[in-house]
């Protein structure tokens, strides 16, 4: 743990050079944060961590040699004081459920804004949690349901009993994208089916059925 007087020493681990550099420059630009090393593989990351003892490791889940899960486990086992912020393209809630018990303090998507990422690093360095807002409820059992704008749109269309294809056409996006959003919606609502998702959404007041043309 470090206080604000000294810079937060960070190691960025990402196998994708562009993103690694993007993250590195983003963090370097921020005050009070010093990127003391970067790594493209899990093994390299572990070596750097052992050698440099950073305050925070910004870790990608997908690495070519060792998975981010195993790197997390390794770091947690050897250096319990080092904070870990997962910055990943994967955003399956399963990861959040698996990582939080391991002692990961932060979990952000790569689509997160630079501000979110910097805040996240600062938060975990101070021992606070930094979870993507919509994941917060799943990872730590929050009650409020946070839906993205797109998810709201999909839910709205879903409530009118549209099929995925129709939704895709309606939103001008691909069916796969609709599936992705529906899948996320179901997870966030804890529903076992689309019908149940609508029921829960109505109960939570996320959609107003009267406002839509519900076809039975």
């Amino acid at each position: 743990m470090t206080n604000g007087k000294t810079a937060i020493r960070v190691i960025v681990v990402d196998d994708h050079p562009m993103l690694r550099e993007g993250t590195q420059s983003l963090l370097t630009r921020s005050a009070g944060i010093a990127v003391i090393g970067t790594a493209g593989t899990g093994a390299e990351a572990l070596r750097l961590v052992a050698a440099l003892r950073p305050d925070v490791v910004v870790l990608d889940m997908h690495l070519p040699d060792i998975s981010g899960m195993d790197v997390t486990r390794e770091i947690r086992a050897n250096f319990p004081d080092i904070a870990i912020l997962i910055l990943t393209g994967y955003d399956d809630t399963g990861y959040v459920r698996a990582l939080v018990p391991l002692g990961v303090q932060g979990y952000l998507r790569k689509t997160a804004t630079g501000e979110e990422i910097v805040d996240g690093v600062r938060a975990v360095a101070q021992g606070r949690l930094a979870l993507a807002p919509d994941l917060l409820q799943l990872g730590v059992g929050g009650t409020s349901v946070h839906l993205t704008e797109r998810e709201h749109e999909v839910l709205w269309l879903l409530a009118s009993c549209r099929r995925n294809k129709e939704i895709a056409e309606g939103l001008g996006i691909s069916v796969k994208t609709v599936e992705f959003h529906v899948s996320r919606l179901l997870e966030k609502l804890g529903a076992r089916s689309r019908t149940e998702a609508i029921r829960i959404a109505v109960q939570l007041g996320l959609v107003d059925l009267d406002a839509n043309h519900v076809e039975s």
């Binding site: 997908h62 998975s67 899960m69 994967y90 399956d92 399963g94 997870e187 089916s193 689309r194 149940e196």
Partner: peptide, 27 residues
């Protein structure tokens, strides 16, 4: 990826969720 990273349950869970999302089936 969850199948590789988190194992079978996560994989099946994803599968089930995908099924729920793409169909009207109650799974």
């Amino acid at each position: 990826p969850v199948l590789d990273d988190l194992g079978l349950i996560a994989g099946i869970d994803w599968l089930v969720n995908d099924m729920r999302a793409s169909t009207d089936l109650d799974v």
